[in-house]
Design a protein around this nucleic acid. Sequence first.
RNA 1: CGGGGCGUGGCGCAGCCCGGUUAGCGCGCCUGCUUUGGGAGCAGGAAGUCGGAGGUUCAAAUCCUCUCGCCCCGACCA
Length: 568
Amino acid sequence: MRWSQALIPTHKEDPADAETVSHRLMLRAGLIRKLTSGVYNYLPLGWRAIRKVEQIVREEMDRAGCQEILMPIASPAELWMETGRWDVYGKELWRVQDRNGRQFVLGPTHEEVVTDIVRNEVRSYRELPFTLYQIQTKFRDEVRPRFGVVRAREFIMKDAYSFHRDEASLDETYRALCDAYTRIFDRLDLNFRAVEAATGAIGGSASHEFMVLSDTGESEVIVCECGYAATSERAEGKIAPPPTGEEERPLERVDTPGMKTIEEVSAFLGVEPWRLVKTIIYEADGRPVATLIRGDREVNEAKLGLALAADIVQPATSETIEKVTGAPVGFAGPVGLEGIEIIADHTVEPLTSVVVGGNENDVHLTNVRPGRDFRVTAFHDIALIAKGDSCAKCGKELDSFRGIEVSQAFKLGTKYSTSMKATFLDEDGEAKPFIMGCYGLGVSRTVAAIIEQHNDKDGIAWPLAAAPLAVEVLAVNVKSDETRRVAEEIYESLRAAGVEVLYDDRDDRPGAKFKDADLVGLPLRVTVGDRGLERGVVEVRVRRTGEQTDVPTDGAAGEIQRILGTLT
RNA sequence: CGGGGCGUGGCGCAGCCCGGUUAGCGCGCCUGCUUUGGGAGCAGGAAGUCGGAGGUUCAAAUCCUCUCGCCCCGACCA
């Protein structure tokens, strides 16, 4: 690839609307361009990186015995109605109509479609187990696209689906695919961690996510030195109880003008946040529910959903809150709250004197005694576990880190096969629903994650496995005949040897070309210029270490390949 | 969806409050000369319906209304 003829539009300055390192660098190095919010063009270098990752994914999936297929992007709404996800998936489901007004879905994932294939084609337990996968563009109409391709509305995903006659078989494939993921991310030189995860809208019993460690990651992972690791939504732990046993005092009504948040109220009244009890109104599958939790803690909506056996749990709208509590948002409280379930977290149980909202504008209640002043419908564990709590497994203090979720594996069980009546005949002659697993891996997101972990102040520093090309040959001054002759020769020799080379043959200032080379960040840079040629050498520089060696011009291509072989 | 902010040559921005000549600046781009090992210098040049629509006014980038787009913070997920 000759730079002078390639579309590699680099930028000297940072784009204004990019926040994270990977997003900035992908734009600056000319990998991607935004078409519209959350939708990107992949330019030559970006697309090459995507294909590198895809290839590794493909190799490892194939090695694990999976079969690649390709399903349509658009699928008919009826399929999604069968499983109920037409409603449950919500606004994220990207819906389109054909000319006749028939509704379609642009696939965010393909459980429905793959299950439809299998129910039509597979009859017998003798054909099980097997795993199908595809690498394809997916659509999710995200509420808030951000961080470039990390959270895009259109993105590239590898999705795999396994079909089994029993749990044991599912377990085996599940483990094999988690191993495949480990190999993939190892090969991509990522610092990652497999963690236990909650099962979201996709459903199912067990789940793991693979997290690439990054401070800009959107996910929080709770970890313990005993080896326990889980997403914060999933994490189990023990929350230290506060001191209790205050003297019993009569309930008191206090004016708290405009004090809506825990911080405001606790600062205003001069009490610790844990002495407050937050009342948060949720809507669980449409019905309002009040939740109580200690003021210094957050509600875990996944746990709340489990406790209520609800598919969709979301914070209530302000209209609902006002209707339920009779007060504007910010002043909800459990005292005198009628006609609604009140679910309290266990953290509330030992408290003896707390501050709560007064269900009246600008009013809170103090010296409130749970049991005396209000009742709850039930206590549940609905608190989000955080760094500093103790591990449910070993009791040690939990730590946390942030990560980018690059893949997730689910044991789906029969959730989809049952609702879609996808069955096979088992040995005993009985029709049984397929037991399924599904395994997603965000390809475009993984490229961003790689950049997030492999960069420095000058730009991207690609690991060889994901690099768009392996080597950049940089001609310092193309007006010098000797420089051009040697650079061309090395370029052609490397290409002939099957090495992917970017040849910077642009008639530009050396400084600009060096800056671009660092920005684009190919693993090896071969500098061809008068300074080296006078001594009969070209300079080979490793992007990630800065290590530089002089290589004799004669036979340079061979030596460059040798050095390439030492890189990861 | 709630909160905050921004739309002005390809990119980054100023101008807007307090309407008033040819709408500026840096980078980039084109031409020429000089220059050539870490984003060059000089000279010349091209490029903007000031996001869109409506309104106020003698006059609108600037004021008003509506609208579209984009970004950031929170709830969702590969």
